[in-house]
Design a protein around this nucleic acid. Structure first.
Lengths: 410, 410
DNA sequence: GAGGATTCTTCAGTTACTAAACAAAGAAAG
DNA sequence: CTTTCTTTGTTTAGTAACTGAAGAATCCTC
């Protein structure tokens, strides 16, 4: 046994709340052991959380020879959060409770090139409809998480949405959101080190290290789409060669499928025809459908892509010493069953730290709406588990403030 | 301007000390701005550090219209640390001061397959000689850092060395040590995100994220040697194909050189002959020497290796959103001039976050003894900047304690 | 040398913890 | 049923580390 562990979180209240969330059901003694705090401290902190209505007592555990433990768990319906995922093709809205469970969900066509003010009004209206559909009081909604592939482009949109809805808005990257969503809604331990491999139209990864979201100095962490897998491979838009994205991303898979006449016909690809919905997403879905129906050319195409993803996943796992890898995002939602076994086999046989600890590879149970759920989870996390801020050096103070994600748009 | 930043370190004393170290010279007001603490707190903390002799006042800054700032800096010769790097070929010892500057350095042949007890006695004797050569009092030496490629194999050795020398021993990975060494001895900002790309006989990377060393759940972080760079490439001992190590690591370069008769003769490779010194390191040095002397075949061989390293470095930088990349370790010490421009060109043209922030690629000024210097820096860090410990979940408590690096061997 | 600006110190008050005593609830044994 | 022991949870007094505000010290300008 090592000495008593010290809590690393900004506040003890937040740390305890996070443990209750992660554990599902836990007693005060369990919290004492997990935090290293004394019984007295836990007692008062828990009382505060119960007074706020965030935590509730839910019965007793079996006795272990003395007084039975009073079990605690999150009061799931004490607070809510809205999550919005802006995608080129679709806008997805979810309302989740404190546990990250989806209470309501709607999905609408993307905003394309509409005028910004009109999009703000429309999104605000649809958020309103989402909330009204379940009749939750506004003051129980902690805020609105807004996630997209390039969040920095949506800063002004976020501010406008804040004014239009009256809800605090938090902005973040979709892959990071997906990772936080997985972390919050359980399945992954509170202090685990994991990555959410995200595939939508783009490819990315959200990274959580030892339970803390890692975004990097400029929010560009997890650009796994530009993992080099072939030093002499085709050129990528990033300026280098042989990136995962250009070799095996959805766009690459669709391009290869279109070059195959027989497959194009069998799968009914949208092809060159222009549509309101981005044809990449539609065609990738069509290829996945064909693969599920046994089309061997479609299967081969996806398995080829999966081999590249597996190599990238292995690289990522080796670099970060990952414990868990979750596949998520719209494209894995429809094609994950092809990718999962390939990634699993690769990591089982070649993860460098596999003798030290296992690495678990899974498919997210809600891969399609993961970004939106994650967006809501970011609100839960940012409102309930206030982030600790970093040190700043004098040099940094002079420099302009960089955009910060996962925090209120201000 | 964002709100006041909160200190994330375990103790304010440690945070302030770390800032003084990183800044070089800083005033109390500078510390107030950097930490977000109030002037009163800084005043008392700084007084404590001055009383301990760790920090000294060193003059005044120009006035900005009022009282001049009293400048502070580390009292470099207040404390010392010993660093020991166990390599197959050599054992390197350094004694550094509080600033991480080398005060004394010796290097001896590796221990090969000698009996453990004899090696402990020998290392303890050589550490004693190192300390005596500069006449530093024992009680000013904070401890001994012991680093190697596979630190978990040296746990018992560390305990024995602790008894033999009477110094607290801290164990860690050599690549991680090199990164901490770079961080501690300056050049890299206190809160920066960077990696030390390490090449000795092995290949690895030490990772520092936002100023905090990242080791991962099992200390296997930064296994960049098993970055996949060719999905159909040659098999690697890790069980996968096309790893950086097998394509472009020192052993691979040497193997390719040996296959080239002309180059073998020109560079005078040790070849198959068995020697006390590992022939890989000797031959890699010979190839590097030949390249420096203008042997085009040697240059081509190293440049080929550099291309692979560049691709792996780009992958690492993209995944971690790096700000700085330092090349270090014995092999980069002799061949870094070939690798540096190739890596720099790759990252300048293809680092995905290059529009958000620059990435600086440099060669460590003390690449050859970086692991040993880093070993000493780990002592400085672990003794002066107590690490914050993580939360533990009930599940974790039941499990056996995993080996922890960068902390005292106990 | 008066007055303002800036730096640094002092000190009372607050917060979040710990340690230790205590109370409550159950198990085991007679 | 009573006693004794174990375990859980609460209360209370004390402490360390901070904040905020007032004041002292030092320097520049006029």
């Amino acid at each position: 046994m090592s000495g008593p562990a010290r809590v690393t979180h900004a506040s003890t209240r937040a740390a305890v709340l996070d443990l209750v969330r992660a554990a599902g059901v836990i007693s005060r003694v369990g919290l004492v052991n997990a935090t290293g705090l004394t019984g007295g401290t836990i007692s008062t902190v828990v009382r505060g959380l119960i007074d706020e209505g965030l935590v509730a007592e839910t019965g007793h555990a079996e006795s272990t020879g003395g007084k039975r433990r009073v079990m605690l768990q999150l009061n799931h319906f004490a607070r809510y959060a809205v999550g919005v995922h802006l995608d080129d093709a679709r806008i997805t809205y979810v309302l989740t409770n404190l546990g990250g469970a989806v209470v309501a969900r709607i999905s609408r066509a993307g905003a394309a090139a509409d005028e910004p003010a009109a999009v703000v009004a429309r999104v605000a209206r649809e958020v309103g409809a989402l909330i009204d559909s379940v009749g939750v009081e506004r003051d129980r909604i902690l805020g609105l998480g807004l996630v997209a592939a390039r969040p920095s482009e949506h800063h002004e949109f976020g501010r406008a949405l804040e004014r239009a809805t009256g809800l605090p808005v938090v902005l973040d990257n979709d892959a990071t959101a997906a990772a936080i969503g997985e972390h919050w809604s359980g399945g992954v331990g509170a202090t685990s080190t994991f990555a959410a491999l995200f595939m939508g139209t783009d490819v990315g990864a959200g990274v959580v290290l030892g339970g803390a979201t890692y975004r990097g100095p400029s929010g560009h962490t997890g650009e796994i789409g530009h993992t080099c897998l072939d030093i002499d491979g085709p050129w990528c838009r990033c300026g280098a060669r042989g990136c995962l994205e250009v070799l095996a991303g959805p766009a690459a898979v669709v391009e290869q499928a279109r070059a195959d006449r027989a497959l194009s016909r069998a799968a009914g690809l949208v092809g060159g025809r222009t549509r309101a919905v981005t044809p990449i997403a539609a065609d990738f879905a069509a290829i996945s459908r064909a693969a599920r129906q046994g089309n061997t050319r479609a299967v081969a195409l996806l398995e080829r892509s999966a081999r590249y993803f597996a190599a990238a996943a292995r690289t990522l796992a080796n670099v970060l010493d990952l414990e868990v890898l979750v596949l998520t995002g719209p494209s894995f939602a429809i094609a994950g069953s092809v990718y999962l076994p390939v990634l699993r086999a690769e990591l089982d046989s070649a993860f460098i730290a596999r003798d030290a600890h296992p690495i678990s590879v899974r498919l997210s149970p809600s891969a399609a709406s993961a970004p939106a759920i994650g967006a809501a989870a970011i609100v839960l996390q940012s409102e309930l588990v206030p982030r600790r801020q970093g040190l700043r050096l004098p040099d940094d103070l002079a420099a302009e403030e960089p955009p910060v994600f996962g925090q209120l748009v201000r």
